[in-house]
Design a protein around this nucleic acid. Structure first.
Length: 477
RNA sequence: GCACGGGUGGCAGAGCAGCUAUGCAACGGACUGCAGAUCCGUGGACCCGGGUGCAAAUCCCGGCCCGUGCUCCA
Protein backbone atom coordinates (compact mmCIF):
# COMPACT_ATOMS: atom_id res chain seq x y z
CA UNK A 1 0.00 0.00 0.00
CA UNK A 2 1.57 3.23 -1.13
CA UNK A 3 2.09 5.99 1.37
CA UNK A 4 1.00 9.30 -0.07
CA UNK A 5 1.67 12.71 1.42
CA UNK A 6 0.39 16.14 0.48
CA UNK A 7 3.32 18.20 -0.69
CA UNK A 8 2.73 21.94 -0.44
CA UNK A 9 5.18 22.72 -3.20
CA UNK A 10 3.47 20.57 -5.83
CA UNK A 11 0.04 21.03 -4.26
CA UNK A 12 -0.78 17.38 -4.72
CA UNK A 13 -0.58 14.17 -2.80
CA UNK A 14 2.53 12.34 -3.92
CA UNK A 15 3.79 8.91 -3.12
CA UNK A 16 6.50 9.15 -0.49
CA UNK A 17 9.69 7.79 -2.01
CA UNK A 18 12.70 8.29 0.25
CA UNK A 19 16.04 9.45 -1.12
CA UNK A 20 17.63 6.44 0.52
CA UNK A 21 15.52 3.33 0.57
CA UNK A 22 14.13 2.54 3.97
CA UNK A 23 15.27 5.81 5.52
CA UNK A 24 13.57 9.15 6.04
CA UNK A 25 15.11 12.42 7.11
CA UNK A 26 12.62 14.90 8.48
CA UNK A 27 13.10 18.42 9.73
CA UNK A 28 10.24 20.26 11.42
CA UNK A 29 10.38 23.89 12.44
CA UNK A 30 9.99 24.00 16.17
CA UNK A 31 9.40 26.93 18.41
CA UNK A 32 10.92 30.28 19.14
CA UNK A 33 11.08 29.98 22.92
CA UNK A 34 10.08 33.47 23.97
CA UNK A 35 6.96 32.35 25.85
CA UNK A 36 5.46 29.13 27.18
CA UNK A 37 4.16 26.74 24.53
CA UNK A 38 0.57 27.14 23.39
CA UNK A 39 -1.79 24.54 22.00
CA UNK A 40 -0.81 25.47 18.47
CA UNK A 41 2.71 24.33 19.26
CA UNK A 42 1.21 21.16 20.71
CA UNK A 43 -0.71 20.51 17.54
CA UNK A 44 2.41 20.91 15.45
CA UNK A 45 4.47 18.69 17.72
CA UNK A 46 1.78 16.00 17.86
CA UNK A 47 1.18 16.11 14.11
CA UNK A 48 4.83 15.45 13.31
CA UNK A 49 5.17 13.02 16.19
CA UNK A 50 2.45 10.90 14.64
CA UNK A 51 3.95 11.22 11.18
CA UNK A 52 7.24 9.95 12.56
CA UNK A 53 5.55 7.19 14.56
CA UNK A 54 3.69 5.99 11.48
CA UNK A 55 6.79 6.02 9.30
CA UNK A 56 8.57 3.95 11.93
CA UNK A 57 5.61 1.60 12.19
CA UNK A 58 5.94 1.09 8.44
CA UNK A 59 9.54 0.07 8.93
CA UNK A 60 11.35 3.25 7.93
CA UNK A 61 14.38 4.31 9.85
CA UNK A 62 13.54 7.91 10.66
CA UNK A 63 15.89 10.69 11.60
CA UNK A 64 13.70 13.42 13.03
CA UNK A 65 15.14 16.86 13.74
CA UNK A 66 13.21 19.61 15.52
CA UNK A 67 14.89 22.91 16.19
CA UNK A 68 14.72 25.75 18.67
CA UNK A 69 15.21 29.25 17.36
CA UNK A 70 16.71 30.44 20.59
CA UNK A 71 17.73 33.93 19.53
CA UNK A 72 15.38 36.41 17.91
CA UNK A 73 13.72 39.81 18.36
CA UNK A 74 11.04 38.60 20.73
CA UNK A 75 13.41 36.72 22.98
CA UNK A 76 15.57 39.82 23.14
CA UNK A 77 12.62 41.98 23.98
CA UNK A 78 11.44 39.67 26.78
CA UNK A 79 14.97 39.46 28.13
CA UNK A 80 15.38 43.23 28.22
CA UNK A 81 11.97 43.73 29.80
CA UNK A 82 12.83 41.30 32.55
CA UNK A 83 16.45 42.33 32.77
CA UNK A 84 17.69 38.77 32.41
CA UNK A 85 19.97 37.11 29.91
CA UNK A 86 18.29 36.06 26.68
CA UNK A 87 19.40 32.48 27.18
CA UNK A 88 17.62 32.38 30.48
CA UNK A 89 14.39 33.27 28.69
CA UNK A 90 15.03 30.70 25.99
CA UNK A 91 16.02 27.93 28.38
CA UNK A 92 13.07 28.50 30.62
CA UNK A 93 10.65 28.17 27.72
CA UNK A 94 12.46 25.20 26.26
CA UNK A 95 12.08 23.47 29.61
CA UNK A 96 8.39 24.25 29.52
CA UNK A 97 8.23 22.87 25.99
CA UNK A 98 9.73 19.55 26.98
CA UNK A 99 7.62 19.31 30.08
CA UNK A 100 4.30 19.80 28.31
CA UNK A 101 5.23 17.82 25.21
CA UNK A 102 6.32 14.89 27.38
CA UNK A 103 2.97 15.06 29.13
CA UNK A 104 1.29 15.00 25.73
CA UNK A 105 3.19 11.82 24.95
CA UNK A 106 5.21 13.44 22.17
CA UNK A 107 8.19 11.25 21.37
CA UNK A 108 11.42 13.18 21.53
CA UNK A 109 13.06 14.02 18.23
CA UNK A 110 16.46 12.55 17.48
CA UNK A 111 17.99 15.97 17.96
CA UNK A 112 16.94 19.44 18.97
CA UNK A 113 19.51 21.75 17.43
CA UNK A 114 19.63 25.36 18.52
CA UNK A 115 20.59 28.46 16.63
CA UNK A 116 23.09 29.51 19.27
CA UNK A 117 24.90 26.21 18.79
CA UNK A 118 24.95 26.52 15.02
CA UNK A 119 26.52 29.95 14.57
CA UNK A 120 29.66 28.77 12.70
CA UNK A 121 27.59 26.83 10.18
CA UNK A 122 25.28 29.82 9.71
CA UNK A 123 28.20 32.16 9.08
CA UNK A 124 29.63 29.70 6.60
CA UNK A 125 26.35 29.54 4.73
CA UNK A 126 25.95 33.31 4.62
CA UNK A 127 29.51 33.56 3.39
CA UNK A 128 28.85 31.10 0.66
CA UNK A 129 25.76 33.01 -0.46
CA UNK A 130 27.78 36.22 -0.67
CA UNK A 131 30.50 34.48 -2.67
CA UNK A 132 27.96 33.08 -5.09
CA UNK A 133 26.49 36.50 -5.66
CA UNK A 134 23.14 35.81 -3.96
CA UNK A 135 23.70 38.06 -0.98
CA UNK A 136 25.15 41.48 -0.30
CA UNK A 137 26.58 43.27 2.69
CA UNK A 138 24.81 46.43 3.79
CA UNK A 139 25.44 48.86 6.60
CA UNK A 140 23.13 47.00 8.95
CA UNK A 141 23.75 43.40 8.00
CA UNK A 142 23.75 40.93 5.16
CA UNK A 143 20.75 40.45 2.88
CA UNK A 144 19.65 37.81 0.45
CA UNK A 145 19.00 39.32 -2.96
CA UNK A 146 15.73 38.00 -4.33
CA UNK A 147 16.44 39.17 -7.87
CA UNK A 148 19.28 36.68 -8.19
CA UNK A 149 16.79 33.81 -8.19
CA UNK A 150 13.38 35.27 -9.02
CA UNK A 151 12.14 31.95 -10.40
CA UNK A 152 12.11 30.55 -6.88
CA UNK A 153 9.63 33.09 -5.63
CA UNK A 154 6.22 31.87 -4.50
CA UNK A 155 6.98 28.17 -4.72
CA UNK A 156 4.91 27.35 -1.67
CA UNK A 157 2.32 30.12 -1.62
CA UNK A 158 1.81 30.92 -5.28
CA UNK A 159 2.55 34.56 -4.77
CA UNK A 160 4.51 36.42 -7.40
CA UNK A 161 7.19 39.05 -7.00
CA UNK A 162 4.78 41.65 -8.29
CA UNK A 163 2.11 40.84 -5.73
CA UNK A 164 4.40 41.32 -2.82
CA UNK A 165 5.89 44.39 -4.41
CA UNK A 166 2.43 45.97 -4.46
CA UNK A 167 1.58 44.73 -1.02
CA UNK A 168 4.49 46.25 0.78
CA UNK A 169 5.76 48.96 -1.56
CA UNK A 170 7.58 51.84 0.02
CA UNK A 171 8.03 50.25 3.38
CA UNK A 172 11.77 49.93 2.97
CA UNK A 173 12.44 53.64 2.93
CA UNK A 174 10.69 54.12 6.23
CA UNK A 175 12.75 51.53 8.05
CA UNK A 176 16.07 52.92 6.97
CA UNK A 177 17.24 49.37 6.35
CA UNK A 178 20.10 48.69 3.98
CA UNK A 179 17.94 46.47 1.83
CA UNK A 180 18.06 47.12 -1.89
CA UNK A 181 14.59 45.72 -2.36
CA UNK A 182 11.95 45.29 0.29
CA UNK A 183 11.52 41.62 -0.62
CA UNK A 184 15.14 40.88 0.20
CA UNK A 185 15.52 39.38 3.62
CA UNK A 186 18.14 39.47 6.33
CA UNK A 187 20.70 36.70 6.62
CA UNK A 188 22.74 38.46 9.28
CA UNK A 189 21.68 41.36 11.47
CA UNK A 190 24.32 43.75 12.78
CA UNK A 191 24.05 44.05 16.56
CA UNK A 192 22.46 47.11 18.04
CA UNK A 193 24.00 48.22 21.28
CA UNK A 194 23.36 45.90 24.18
CA UNK A 195 22.04 43.09 22.04
CA UNK A 196 23.48 39.59 22.21
CA UNK A 197 25.93 39.15 19.38
CA UNK A 198 28.49 36.88 17.78
CA UNK A 199 31.60 37.80 15.85
CA UNK A 200 31.37 37.48 12.09
CA UNK A 201 33.19 38.67 8.97
CA UNK A 202 30.56 41.45 8.85
CA UNK A 203 31.02 42.56 12.40
CA UNK A 204 29.23 41.53 15.56
CA UNK A 205 25.64 40.49 15.03
CA UNK A 206 23.23 37.62 14.97
CA UNK A 207 21.52 35.42 12.37
CA UNK A 208 18.44 36.61 10.51
CA UNK A 209 15.23 34.71 11.06
CA UNK A 210 15.35 32.20 8.19
CA UNK A 211 18.95 31.20 7.77
CA UNK A 212 19.12 29.07 10.92
CA UNK A 213 16.78 26.43 9.55
CA UNK A 214 18.71 26.14 6.31
CA UNK A 215 21.94 25.75 8.27
CA UNK A 216 20.56 23.32 10.83
CA UNK A 217 18.81 21.08 8.33
CA UNK A 218 21.99 20.99 6.25
CA UNK A 219 24.08 20.17 9.27
CA UNK A 220 21.85 17.38 10.53
CA UNK A 221 20.23 15.96 7.41
CA UNK A 222 22.57 16.85 4.58
CA UNK A 223 22.33 18.55 1.21
CA UNK A 224 19.10 16.83 0.29
CA UNK A 225 16.53 15.44 2.63
CA UNK A 226 13.05 14.00 2.48
CA UNK A 227 10.57 15.99 4.52
CA UNK A 228 10.44 19.52 5.82
CA UNK A 229 7.53 20.43 8.04
CA UNK A 230 6.02 23.23 10.04
CA UNK A 231 2.84 25.23 10.48
CA UNK A 232 1.09 26.78 7.48
CA UNK A 233 1.86 30.18 8.90
CA UNK A 234 5.52 29.51 8.16
CA UNK A 235 5.10 28.87 4.45
CA UNK A 236 5.66 32.52 3.69
CA UNK A 237 8.12 33.99 4.18
CA UNK A 238 10.04 31.53 6.33
CA UNK A 239 9.99 28.39 4.23
CA UNK A 240 10.24 30.22 0.94
CA UNK A 241 13.30 32.00 2.29
CA UNK A 242 14.74 28.61 3.18
CA UNK A 243 14.27 27.44 -0.37
CA UNK A 244 16.22 30.47 -1.62
CA UNK A 245 19.00 30.04 0.88
CA UNK A 246 19.49 26.30 0.73
CA UNK A 247 19.09 25.87 -3.00
CA UNK A 248 21.22 28.87 -3.93
CA UNK A 249 23.91 27.89 -1.47
CA UNK A 250 24.03 24.22 -2.44
CA UNK A 251 23.49 24.81 -6.15
CA UNK A 252 20.83 22.18 -6.70
CA UNK A 253 17.11 21.78 -6.36
CA UNK A 254 15.09 20.57 -4.70
CA UNK A 255 16.84 20.32 -1.39
CA UNK A 256 13.58 19.34 0.28
CA UNK A 257 11.63 16.55 -1.41
CA UNK A 258 8.31 17.05 0.38
CA UNK A 259 6.93 20.08 2.23
CA UNK A 260 4.33 19.23 4.86
CA UNK A 261 2.35 21.90 6.67
CA UNK A 262 0.02 21.48 9.61
CA UNK A 263 -3.12 23.59 10.01
CA UNK A 264 -3.71 26.16 12.71
CA UNK A 265 -5.77 26.08 15.87
CA UNK A 266 -8.90 28.17 16.16
CA UNK A 267 -10.72 28.78 19.40
CA UNK A 268 -14.49 28.82 19.04
CA UNK A 269 -14.09 29.49 15.36
CA UNK A 270 -11.70 32.38 15.74
CA UNK A 271 -8.01 32.61 15.36
CA UNK A 272 -6.22 31.98 18.60
CA UNK A 273 -4.20 35.02 19.53
CA UNK A 274 -3.12 36.92 22.56
CA UNK A 275 -4.95 40.03 21.45
CA UNK A 276 -8.23 38.14 21.09
CA UNK A 277 -7.93 36.98 24.68
CA UNK A 278 -8.56 33.39 23.63
CA UNK A 279 -5.02 32.25 24.00
CA UNK A 280 -4.37 28.84 25.53
CA UNK A 281 -0.98 27.76 26.69
CA UNK A 282 -0.60 24.02 26.97
CA UNK A 283 -0.26 24.36 30.73
CA UNK A 284 -3.54 26.28 30.90
CA UNK A 285 -5.26 23.62 28.88
CA UNK A 286 -3.83 20.83 31.02
CA UNK A 287 -5.43 22.40 34.06
CA UNK A 288 -8.77 21.51 32.55
CA UNK A 289 -8.19 18.49 30.42
CA UNK A 290 -6.17 15.31 30.70
CA UNK A 291 -3.09 15.40 28.46
CA UNK A 292 -4.10 12.35 26.46
CA UNK A 293 -7.59 13.77 25.99
CA UNK A 294 -6.02 16.96 24.69
CA UNK A 295 -3.92 14.88 22.33
CA UNK A 296 -7.04 13.02 21.21
CA UNK A 297 -8.77 16.33 20.54
CA UNK A 298 -5.87 17.61 18.48
CA UNK A 299 -5.82 14.57 16.19
CA UNK A 300 -9.57 14.58 15.70
CA UNK A 301 -9.03 16.23 12.34
CA UNK A 302 -6.28 15.45 9.82
CA UNK A 303 -3.16 17.46 10.48
CA UNK A 304 -3.63 19.84 7.55
CA UNK A 305 -7.12 20.95 8.54
CA UNK A 306 -7.64 23.68 11.08
CA UNK A 307 -8.79 22.35 14.45
CA UNK A 308 -11.40 24.26 16.33
CA UNK A 309 -10.71 24.12 20.04
CA UNK A 310 -14.08 24.31 21.75
CA UNK A 311 -15.94 22.64 24.57
CA UNK A 312 -17.95 20.37 22.29
CA UNK A 313 -14.79 18.99 20.73
CA UNK A 314 -13.15 18.50 24.09
CA UNK A 315 -16.19 16.85 25.70
CA UNK A 316 -16.52 14.58 22.73
CA UNK A 317 -12.88 13.58 22.98
CA UNK A 318 -13.12 13.12 26.71
CA UNK A 319 -16.01 10.71 26.25
CA UNK A 320 -14.42 8.72 23.46
CA UNK A 321 -11.01 8.68 25.02
CA UNK A 322 -12.50 7.60 28.34
CA UNK A 323 -14.17 4.65 26.66
CA UNK A 324 -10.96 3.73 24.93
CA UNK A 325 -8.99 3.92 28.12
CA UNK A 326 -11.47 1.94 30.18
CA UNK A 327 -11.84 -0.84 27.64
CA UNK A 328 -8.09 -1.02 27.16
CA UNK A 329 -7.20 -1.14 30.85
CA UNK A 330 -9.91 -3.62 31.69
CA UNK A 331 -8.99 -5.85 28.79
CA UNK A 332 -5.35 -5.60 29.73
CA UNK A 333 -5.95 -6.61 33.32
CA UNK A 334 -8.18 -9.50 32.29
CA UNK A 335 -6.20 -10.99 29.46
CA UNK A 336 -3.04 -9.00 28.75
CA UNK A 337 -1.91 -7.80 25.36
CA UNK A 338 -1.67 -10.39 22.62
CA UNK A 339 -1.18 -10.88 18.93
CA UNK A 340 -4.01 -9.64 16.72
CA UNK A 341 -2.76 -10.60 13.29
CA UNK A 342 -4.50 -13.96 13.08
CA UNK A 343 -7.89 -12.43 13.87
CA UNK A 344 -9.67 -11.53 10.61
CA UNK A 345 -11.79 -8.75 12.06
CA UNK A 346 -8.78 -7.09 13.67
CA UNK A 347 -6.70 -7.50 10.54
CA UNK A 348 -9.42 -5.82 8.55
CA UNK A 349 -9.50 -2.92 10.98
CA UNK A 350 -5.72 -2.72 10.78
CA UNK A 351 -5.92 -2.49 7.01
CA UNK A 352 -8.45 0.33 7.13
CA UNK A 353 -6.43 2.08 9.78
CA UNK A 354 -3.35 1.75 7.61
CA UNK A 355 -4.98 2.97 4.45
CA UNK A 356 -6.20 6.01 6.36
CA UNK A 357 -2.76 6.74 7.70
CA UNK A 358 -1.19 6.05 4.31
CA UNK A 359 -3.44 8.69 2.82
CA UNK A 360 -1.56 11.70 4.13
CA UNK A 361 -1.75 10.57 7.76
CA UNK A 362 -5.51 10.80 8.14
CA UNK A 363 -5.86 10.39 11.88
CA UNK A 364 -9.62 10.95 11.77
CA UNK A 365 -10.12 7.84 9.68
CA UNK A 366 -7.69 6.02 11.94
CA UNK A 367 -9.71 7.00 15.00
CA UNK A 368 -12.87 5.55 13.51
CA UNK A 369 -11.17 2.14 13.47
CA UNK A 370 -9.97 2.63 17.01
CA UNK A 371 -13.50 3.45 18.13
CA UNK A 372 -14.88 0.38 16.44
CA UNK A 373 -12.33 -1.88 18.14
CA UNK A 374 -13.15 -0.27 21.48
CA UNK A 375 -16.78 -1.11 20.96
CA UNK A 376 -15.90 -4.67 20.06
CA UNK A 377 -13.57 -5.08 23.02
CA UNK A 378 -16.22 -3.67 25.32
CA UNK A 379 -18.60 -6.39 24.18
CA UNK A 380 -15.99 -9.11 24.51
CA UNK A 381 -15.34 -8.05 28.09
CA UNK A 382 -19.00 -7.72 29.01
CA UNK A 383 -19.88 -11.12 27.59
CA UNK A 384 -16.83 -12.70 29.23
CA UNK A 385 -15.61 -14.03 25.94
CA UNK A 386 -12.54 -16.09 25.26
CA UNK A 387 -9.48 -14.43 26.72
CA UNK A 388 -7.49 -14.83 23.55
CA UNK A 389 -10.02 -12.65 21.73
CA UNK A 390 -9.76 -10.03 24.44
CA UNK A 391 -5.98 -10.04 24.42
CA UNK A 392 -5.91 -9.78 20.63
CA UNK A 393 -8.11 -6.70 20.70
CA UNK A 394 -5.98 -5.23 23.49
CA UNK A 395 -2.89 -5.92 21.43
CA UNK A 396 -4.46 -4.17 18.45
CA UNK A 397 -5.19 -1.09 20.52
CA UNK A 398 -1.72 -1.16 22.02
CA UNK A 399 -0.14 -1.06 18.60
CA UNK A 400 -2.40 1.43 16.83
CA UNK A 401 -4.06 3.62 19.44
CA UNK A 402 -1.00 3.44 21.68
CA UNK A 403 2.04 3.00 19.49
CA UNK A 404 0.96 4.99 16.45
CA UNK A 405 -1.51 7.58 17.70
CA UNK A 406 0.00 7.77 21.17
CA UNK A 407 -3.31 8.23 22.99
CA UNK A 408 -2.83 5.35 25.46
CA UNK A 409 -0.77 5.42 28.63
CA UNK A 410 1.87 2.77 29.28
CA UNK A 411 0.73 -0.71 30.28
CA UNK A 412 1.79 -0.07 33.85
CA UNK A 413 -0.24 3.12 34.03
CA UNK A 414 -3.24 1.50 32.42
CA UNK A 415 -3.11 -1.38 34.87
CA UNK A 416 -2.76 0.95 37.80
CA UNK A 417 -5.96 2.68 36.72
CA UNK A 418 -7.93 -0.55 37.06
CA UNK A 419 -6.04 -1.44 40.23
CA UNK A 420 -6.72 1.85 41.93
CA UNK A 421 -10.34 1.61 40.88
CA UNK A 422 -10.48 -1.87 42.35
CA UNK A 423 -8.86 -0.61 45.53
CA UNK A 424 -11.29 2.26 45.86
CA UNK A 425 -14.08 -0.16 45.22
CA UNK A 426 -13.06 -2.70 47.81
CA UNK A 427 -12.56 0.06 50.39
CA UNK A 428 -16.24 0.91 50.40
CA UNK A 429 -17.53 -2.39 49.16
CA UNK A 430 -19.04 -3.71 52.38
CA UNK A 431 -20.87 -0.43 53.10
CA UNK A 432 -22.26 -0.34 49.60
CA UNK A 433 -23.30 -3.97 49.65
CA UNK A 434 -25.12 -3.47 52.94
CA UNK A 435 -27.04 -0.50 51.56
CA UNK A 436 -27.82 -2.36 48.39
CA UNK A 437 -29.23 -5.27 50.34
CA UNK A 438 -31.47 -2.94 52.25
CA UNK A 439 -32.51 -1.31 49.04
CA UNK A 440 -33.29 -4.66 47.43
CA UNK A 441 -35.60 -5.62 50.26
CA UNK A 442 -37.26 -2.21 50.02
CA UNK A 443 -37.73 -2.81 46.32
CA UNK A 444 -39.16 -6.25 46.91
CA UNK A 445 -41.78 -4.74 49.16
CA UNK A 446 -42.29 -2.00 46.51
CA UNK A 447 -41.17 0.67 48.92
CA UNK A 448 -39.90 2.84 46.08
CA UNK A 449 -39.34 5.97 48.11
CA UNK A 450 -37.02 4.15 50.51
CA UNK A 451 -35.25 2.51 47.56
CA UNK A 452 -34.67 5.86 45.90
CA UNK A 453 -33.54 7.36 49.15
CA UNK A 454 -30.84 4.75 49.46
CA UNK A 455 -29.86 5.32 45.87
CA UNK A 456 -29.44 9.03 46.59
CA UNK A 457 -27.38 8.19 49.61
CA UNK A 458 -25.10 6.06 47.46
CA UNK A 459 -24.83 8.84 44.91
CA UNK A 460 -23.62 11.15 47.64
CA UNK A 461 -20.90 8.59 48.31
CA UNK A 462 -19.96 8.79 44.66
CA UNK A 463 -21.52 5.44 43.86
CA UNK A 464 -23.80 4.96 40.89
CA UNK A 465 -26.25 2.07 41.04
CA UNK A 466 -27.51 0.46 37.90
CA UNK A 467 -30.29 -2.10 38.12
CA UNK A 468 -29.92 -4.89 35.63
CA UNK A 469 -31.82 -8.05 34.88
CA UNK A 470 -29.51 -9.97 37.23
CA UNK A 471 -29.72 -7.56 40.12
CA UNK A 472 -28.02 -4.23 40.75
CA UNK A 473 -24.43 -3.38 39.83
CA UNK A 474 -22.53 -0.36 40.98
CA UNK A 475 -19.55 1.70 40.00
CA UNK A 476 -17.62 4.65 41.32
CA UNK A 477 -18.05 7.88 39.44
C1' G B 1 -6.84 43.43 -3.50
C1' C B 2 -3.76 38.96 -4.45
C1' A B 3 -2.49 33.89 -2.75
C1' C B 4 -3.64 29.30 -0.32
C1' G B 5 -7.32 26.30 2.16
C1' G B 6 -12.41 25.38 3.10
C1' G B 7 -18.05 25.36 2.73
C1' U B 8 -21.32 17.87 4.22
C1' G B 9 -27.13 15.93 8.57
C1' G B 10 -28.96 19.49 15.29
C1' C B 11 -23.31 19.58 16.57
C1' A B 12 -18.19 17.84 15.61
C1' G B 13 -16.06 15.73 11.53
C1' A B 14 -14.64 11.78 7.42
C1' G B 15 -15.43 10.60 2.35
C1' C B 16 -13.24 13.54 -2.99
C1' A B 17 -16.98 9.81 -9.08
C1' G B 18 -21.15 4.47 -8.13
C1' C B 19 -21.21 0.84 -2.11
C1' U B 20 -24.41 2.74 6.07
C1' A B 21 -18.39 7.02 7.55
C1' U B 22 -17.91 7.56 12.74
C1' G B 23 -18.94 9.92 17.50
C1' C B 24 -22.32 13.07 20.26
C1' A B 25 -27.47 14.60 20.23
C1' A B 26 -32.67 13.18 18.59
C1' C B 27 -36.44 9.52 17.80
C1' G B 28 -38.53 4.29 18.22
C1' G B 29 -37.94 -0.43 20.65
C1' A B 30 -35.85 -4.19 24.32
C1' C B 31 -34.78 -4.10 29.59
C1' U B 32 -36.79 -1.22 33.97
C1' G B 33 -41.10 0.53 39.66
C1' C B 34 -38.46 4.93 38.12
C1' A B 35 -33.69 6.44 36.69
C1' G B 36 -29.23 4.99 34.58
C1' A B 37 -26.27 1.82 31.79
C1' U B 38 -26.38 -1.47 27.79
C1' C B 39 -28.31 -3.55 23.33
C1' C B 40 -31.29 -3.34 18.71
C1' G B 41 -33.29 -0.08 15.23
C1' U B 42 -34.79 4.82 12.61
C1' G B 43 -34.71 9.42 10.38
C1' G B 44 -31.76 13.23 8.58
C1' A B 45 -26.65 16.27 4.68
C1' C B 46 -23.65 17.35 0.80
C1' C B 47 -23.49 26.65 -0.25
C1' C B 48 -25.79 28.40 -5.16
C1' G B 49 -25.94 28.22 -10.70
C1' G B 50 -24.18 25.97 -15.03
C1' G B 51 -21.13 21.96 -17.49
C1' U B 52 -18.73 16.91 -18.40
C1' G B 53 -19.97 11.56 -17.30
C1' C B 54 -24.19 5.79 -17.72
C1' A B 55 -23.33 7.89 -12.80
C1' A B 56 -21.07 14.04 -9.13
C1' A B 57 -20.99 15.75 -2.20
C1' U B 58 -16.81 13.95 -5.11
C1' C B 59 -14.26 16.43 -11.72
C1' C B 60 -14.64 21.43 -14.68
C1' C B 61 -16.46 26.70 -15.06
C1' G B 62 -18.92 30.94 -12.69
C1' G B 63 -20.81 33.10 -8.19
C1' C B 64 -21.55 33.68 -2.86
C1' C B 65 -19.68 32.90 2.05
C1' C B 66 -15.79 31.61 5.80
C1' G B 67 -10.65 30.89 7.50
C1' U B 68 -5.47 31.80 6.94
C1' G B 69 -1.24 34.34 4.70
C1' C B 70 0.81 38.83 2.26
C1' U B 71 7.82 39.77 5.61
C1' C B 72 6.12 38.72 14.45
C1' C B 73 3.88 33.69 14.16
C1' A B 74 3.39 26.18 15.01
Amino acid sequence: MALRVYDTRSRTKRELIPLVEGQIGIYACGITPYSPSHIGHARQAIAFDIIVRWLRNRGFQVNYIANFTDIDDKIISVSSEEGVDFLEVANRNIEDYFEVMDALNVTRANEYPRVTETIPEIIEMVNSLIEKGHAYVANDGVYFEIDTAPEKYGQLTGQTLEMVREGAGGRVDETGSGKRDHRDFALWKAAKSGEPNWESPWGPGRPGWHIECSAMSLKHLGERFDIHGGGTDLMFPHHEAEIFQSECCLGHEPVVQYWLHNGMINVNGEKMSKSEGNFWTVSDALQQVDPLVLRYTLINAPYRQPVDFNTVMIDDSRLNHGRLLRAYSEGLSIAGSGDWSSNPALSGAAERFSSGMNDDFNTRVALVEVQSIVKELRQLIDTESDKSDVSAAVGWLAEFAGGVLGVLPTEEEALSITESEAAARSAISSDVEALLEERESARESKNWSRADEIRDELISMGVVVEDGSEGPTWRIE
